[in-house]
Amino acid sequence: MEKFEKLTGIAAPMPLVNIDTDMIIPKQFLKTIKRSGLGVHAFDEMRYLDDGSENPEFVLNQPAYREASVIVAGDNFGCGSSREHAPWALADFGIKVVISTSFADIFYNNCFKNGMLPIVMPQDVVDVLMKDAEKGANARMTVDLENQVVTTSDGEEFAFEVDPFRKHCLLEGLDDIGLTMEKAGAIDTFESAAAQSRPWV
């Protein structure tokens, strides 16, 4: 997994509450064989009109936000099904950070599995960040995971909390698999012992 240390990028404002996984990636895109390439379908129903053309109203279609790497969103982001396609779609689009007052549990966990950082902030801070995001492409927000600080384009700083273990994994670029692979020695040992005790397996 790619390391996440510090990011300075464009933040897109999505003040909607309850942005669910169906909105993030509708179910017709689950019959895919890839986890990459889902970015073009991210927010499909909001992003495209019935004729397939882009909806100019949708924030990520606006010139200022096409390169966004942060989303500032309303409450309860990522609710709905457990589909891992949701973080896959966001990551493939280029989103590395989502900031909201609250997240659905499974989506929150899935983010970390995919190198993304979900940040929970109190409502008044989200309001300030939302305002900052609304300024467009020239207003770049900085997310510093090491120091656990979000800095607005005006230099205003806000601290955030993150589980120390998850922080460690993101900073080091360790996914679950990477972590388990660090235990390869123990797995080797287990395998040799099992080869003795249960050779038929």
Partner: peptide, 16 residues
């Protein structure tokens, strides 16, 4: 198991 876990088992032959 889920797809991330399928990958985990393929790579490590273990599951958390």
């Amino acid at each position: 198991i889920g797809t991330s876990e399928v990958e985990h088992v393929l790579a490590t032959q273990t599951l958390i």
